[in-house]
């Protein structure tokens, strides 16, 4: 392609974004935009898929049939969300099987939050409330992301996430109305999940080199710190209604800012977990790999069946 032709395509691309229109799969886009979208959507898809594991551990130990049915539906949704997102990634010219390979070979990342263990049933509730609550904060603005297939997948996902957050909060309310031991379980789970939930928004703006470009391309609509603050402001009154203490002595309302101030986040822990040294990284990836390998015969049998019917 000539330099002039490319310049004209680039102008058209920029103009589409300026007018708040969506970029669609077969449109020309800069290589860096395509690479950023592939990386972001694939990481998001992997997070949904790996995200089935922490809660999936409790399906066989749910305290009642009602809770078991809810948890099954929720984990099935996570699988669905992963597949909507793989579908969106594929519109950018990557192969879905290749993405799974990149995940199990640890060449692509997923959200650091899923590398923490779920130690009691209260964790199921806290994940719904805090982890899915943080995810909703992140994902609602992504419904207006500039890449059409991603934005449409996010709309479907956000509709379903609301169920996830509410079932979690209701579970916690039920436990808080129970025994002292149950209340202690809830508080313990909150203590363990609060800080990792704040880390879900990513590094602080000063250490997030890609943010400016992603905002210019309207892939992201708000910075990491803006979304983190929004989450804290939304969550504090929910914690009060629940009757739990968020584990941060510096957390208090700041009337001058009109926001809650909160204490420093341990970014060394974040980097450590992201690098692969979290409590469950190895286990999560190993289990995903095992599921993929143990499912190979099903894929092969389905393909053989399809081939046989085609030939007969």
């Amino acid at each position: 392609m000539t330099a002039v032709a490319e310049e004209s395509l680039e102008r058209h691309f920029e103009h589409t974004i300026e007018r708040d229109q969506r970029i669609e799969p077969r449109d020309w886009m800069p290589d860096a935009y395509r690479a950023t979208m592939v990386r972001q959507i694939a990481q998001h898809a992997h997070s949904e898929i790996i995200g089935m594991q922490p809660e999936g551990d409790w399906i066989t130990r749910a305290p009642s049939l009602r809770r078991k049915a809810i948890l099954l539906a929720k984990v099935q949704d996570e699988a669905g969300h992963g597949l909507y997102l793989y579908s969106a990634t594929e519109t950018l010219g990557v192969d879905r099987a290749d993405l799974t390979t990149r995940l199990i070979e640890r060449r692509q990342k997923y959200s650091s939050i899923f590398n923490y263990p779920t130690l009691s049933y209260a964790d199921v509730g806290v994940i719904g409330w805090l982890v899915d609550g943080a995810a909703i904060c992140n994902q609602v603005p992504l419904c207006r992301s500039s890449y059409g297939p991603y934005a449409r997948a996010m709309i479907r996902i956000c509709k379903e996430e609301s169920f996830h957050q509410r079932q979690g909060y209701e579970l916690l309310l039920t436990m808080m109305r129970g025994t002292d031991a149950q209340r202690a379980m809830v508080q313990d789970a909150v203590d363990r999940w609060w800080w990792p939930s704040l880390m879900m928004f990513g590094p602080p703006d000063a250490d997030s080199p890609n943010t400016a470009q992603s905002m210019a391309w309207k892939i992201k609509r708000h910075t990491n710190d803006e979304l983190r603050q929004r989450f804290v402001d939304m969550t504090v009154p929910q914690a009060e209604a629940l009757g739990v203490t968020l584990p941060d002595p510096d957390l208090r309302w700041n009337p001058d800012r009109g926001h809650y101030d909160f204490g420093p986040i341990d970014w060394d822990e974040f980097k450590r977990v992201l690098r692969g040294d979290g409590p469950c990284n190895a286990e999560r990836v190993a289990r995903r790999r095992r599921a993929h390998e143990e499912g190979a015969w099903v894929r092969e049998a389905a393909a053989a069946h399809a081939a046989k019917r085609r030939d007969s």
Binding site: G80, L83, Y84, A88, A302
Partner: peptide
């Protein structure tokens, strides 16, 4: 149009589509 999926044949594609795109 709601999205895409992978399947070995038409019948499996329909079943997968039901599970993936019409859970509610």
């Amino acid at each position: 149009h709601v999205g895409s999926l992978h399947a070995p044949d038409d019948e499996m594609a329909l079943r997968n589509a039901r599970d993936l795109y019409t859970r509610r």
